[in-house]
Nucleic acid binder design. Sequence first.
DNA 1: CTACCATTCAAACGATCGTTTGACGAGATT
DNA 2: AATCTCGTCAAACGATCGTTTGAATGGTAG
Lengths: 208, 208
Amino acid sequence: MGQANFSTRERILGVAETLFARHGFAGASLRQVTATAKVNLAAVNYHFGSKDGLIEEVFRRRLDELNRERLAALAAAVAREDATLEDVLDAFIRPALNQSQQAAGGGAFVRVLARAYAEHDERLRKFLSENYGHVLREFALVFARFLPHLDKEELYWRLDIIAGAVTYAMADFGIIKRRASTSEDAHRKQAIGHLVAFAAAGLKAPGM
Amino acid sequence: MGQANFSTRERILGVAETLFARHGFAGASLRQVTATAKVNLAAVNYHFGSKDGLIEEVFRRRLDELNRERLAALAAAVAREDATLEDVLDAFIRPALNQSQQAAGGGAFVRVLARAYAEHDERLRKFLSENYGHVLREFALVFARFLPHLDKEELYWRLDIIAGAVTYAMADFGIIKRRASTSEDAHRKQAIGHLVAFAAAGLKAPGM
DNA sequence: CTACCATTCAAACGATCGTTTGACGAGATT
DNA sequence: AATCTCGTCAAACGATCGTTTGAATGGTAG
């Protein structure tokens, strides 16, 4: 997995992210993780206390990064006086899809995220809502300015729909397969474009 | 889990669906399943051959049902001469959300579905595309009649986005929590309405 | 040089995993 | 009545799990 030059701690985190995504939290054993990372088995408990501690750290690292990028992109969009609804949507969508395809982590985290949702583990769910809710709320405030025809409830419904579509796209669940003639980068940009256009049309629809 | 009157086989399937959804395929042990179902541990291997056999059967049962309901609703919509785009979307979305909240299974299957996606297990993925792809293709044919302004690729991108939002909604991942004053039934109908309206607006948007 | 601290290591712990086995009994078949 | 089949059962199998232990290692400070 090509992490030979990093510290023990970082090698474990990188490999764990990949293997948790591929086999699940319960399905990926610490022996698999440590063997792949070429570190001693006991290193996980030494550096992270327990397997749960490792899971939480894998998680926090990527989510914090995504939150930072989204909020920065939002701030940049708002700062421009001619910002459009599409620009704000782009600030929400682009960092997510970028992170899902970047080399380090290789889209593993988003599958870990999807799995964490699926696990329905209350601890992880609470962690997510605490560390992600405020981002969604900031975006909602900005969206509300562009969409005065929607009341708060209607707006949140629609943002929820968008978050669903983006999460799904991040995890690469979709049926649309990239053609050999299209680079990963071009494919991602296509996905971003379609998502932004689709979401903008959905948001602009009249209230019910 | 109140399955006392069913056969051993059915009790195992019902309990397994719930526990797989709650703890994952690897996280839920056969000992948990058989103890909850009040059957002998060896019954799983007797009736399903292996744990993988049980997983596949849990899966096939619900997916077949969903496919049947969606295609029936599509046929009913197409049969009516005044059918709208929204009617077709409804045929795609309503069966999914209905199944996700019905008493038997209790929405467990959709989390099992989400997990199967996340597992990224090639066997399960192939199974899914083989047993679900034709449904999506049939819907695409009908959508294409309503949306002559979209070429095939653009249409599939948008259907993929819709499928993502619906899957997300099925799994009840969303941030929107049902209010105590709203019944589950009313909440589901609201979700269907919002999804249909949002998706219709997204589909009707001009091509890129 | 000595003492110290952080880190890594091989080895083992008990617990739990999926699966297999062979016995047992109730009904159906000959 | 004797035989066979199907489903269930308690018990055990070897494998693998997360975690713990105590010794070895190597760089740093006194």
